[in-house]
Design a protein around this nucleic acid. Structure first.
Lengths: 230, 230
DNA sequence: GGCGTTGTGTTCGCTGGCGCACGGTGAGAC
DNA sequence: GTCTCACCGTGCGCCAGCGAACACAACGCC
């Protein structure tokens, strides 16, 4: 078996890790796949190892806003940790790749059986909530360019690659803005030599520069994660 | 002893409720009191009975945005339920009134001792998180007038009174907007006969009208609460 | 090799909210 | 009775982002 490569699982005590992995099945996340729709019961819990997932809030008929991102540092299905089956958010695969998957019943049973596991996942719930709260502030105060930069950095961290597939259209959906707005912001970043892109293939050229262009939320998110699960 | 009048405590099984109340001390929340500053360790957990508390996120040097509100339907200190001591948010008293208070150590001990309590508070964490997520979307898409209406309704629910003390300045801080913007929105609501106010004393005249003017987030929040803790 | 589809660049007029600022007025302090 | 201060009304210029639209180029399909 390949190394686990999901931080939450790796941090579990040996016994719990083994038991959980025995219940996991490896699945491949495919781009744009919807793992869970709003208001529907969660069927599986996901622990990404290479792919990553965006959590999107919808309000009225508006496009949608990303409020959280889950890569191999986290999991999708935190609502189950809190004892709730329905997802309040849409879970959308943004980075294709490998992932562990557990059925809801098995997951609940393990959670009930292991205090250590529950305790750790509680902490992750906290971290993800902090990210969500930061997203609220970010929505309110930061300009598209800064938010775009932040989003690209977060994606790059989770894709473990400086190149990934993403269109302006999709970015607009994630940021809750117009596609044209993204084009303007992205082309500025390109002119500055921070990124380059062409028909959905985007490459980060200057990570440090991008970090400088990003809003403070990026650093804040990382700090919270490091403090509680680092 | 007066009736408990905090929904979370009331919903506990008899044994747990009695034990928790034995550890509680009654305190009076005073307007504008800061119960907990960002990044500092939480000292007490609060279960409001008459007063209520706002949770405010700060980003950079910007004014602040309210991302959650806690009245007698909830509690302040959810981070402790997740095993984290530091608060990610500022907790600010917005409605003065009575409240139960428990020390952190006592609270943790009770939480560890009672599965039923932990389970219920987990659910409340979920509800509060949903509220936070809604706040993010609300920030992004809704106009000041609609958000103001929502905020007034939420306050009224928690104040159990159609009259309360609130200035435009403070509302601006809560909504993360300019004071002048609040004045414009509030005076429109007044012209429509939905509210009346004068030098910090505000009265709701037409609750139904206000609900019609508010964004969908208000109804959504209530629905989530009712579904999970109703 | 033609054709529809998808991704990107750009324009135009509009508007909500911003920063800043000034003025008025009620209420309490002395 | 005056003074001060908190609270509220309003105005002005500005700008980010919006909605709607059009143009063009690259790619995939037949």
């Amino acid at each position: 078996m390949a190394p686990v490569q999901n931080r939450l699982i790796e941090r579990l005590p040996h016994r719990e890790r083994t038991r959980l992995l025995a219940l996991c099945e490896p699945v491949q996340l495919t781009l744009s796949e919807v793992l869970c729709e709003v208001g529907t019961p969660t069927r599986h819990v996901y622990f990404p190892t290479a792919g990553f997932i965006c959590l999107v809030k919808h309000v009225d008929a508006h496009p949608g806003v990303e409020v959280g991102m889950v890569g191999r540092e986290g999991m999708f299905g935190t609502q189950l940790v809190l004892g709730v089956v329905n997802s309040p958010l849409r879970a959308l695969v943004q980075g294709p790749g490998a992932c562990w998957r557990v059925g809801v019943a098995d997951f609940k049973a393990e959670l009930a059986a292991s205090v250590a596991m529950k305790r750790q996942l509680d902490r992750y719930v906290y971290v993800l909530t902090a990210q969500t709260v930061a997203a609220a502030g970010c929505q309110r105060f930061h300009l598209i360019g800064a938010r775009l930069s932040r989003w690209l950095l977060m994606s790059q961290d989770r894709a473990h690659d400086d190149h990934f597939h993403i269109t302006h259209e999709f970015l607009a959906y994630m940021l809750g803005v117009r596609r044209a707005g993204v084009t303007v912001a992205a082309s500025r970043l390109q002119r500055l030599g921070l990124i380059t892109y062409h028909r959905g293939e985007l490459t980060v050229l200057d990570r440090a520069g991008l970090a400088a262009a990003a809003c403070s939320c990026y650093a804040a998110d990382r700090a919270v994660y490091a403090e509680h699960l680092g």
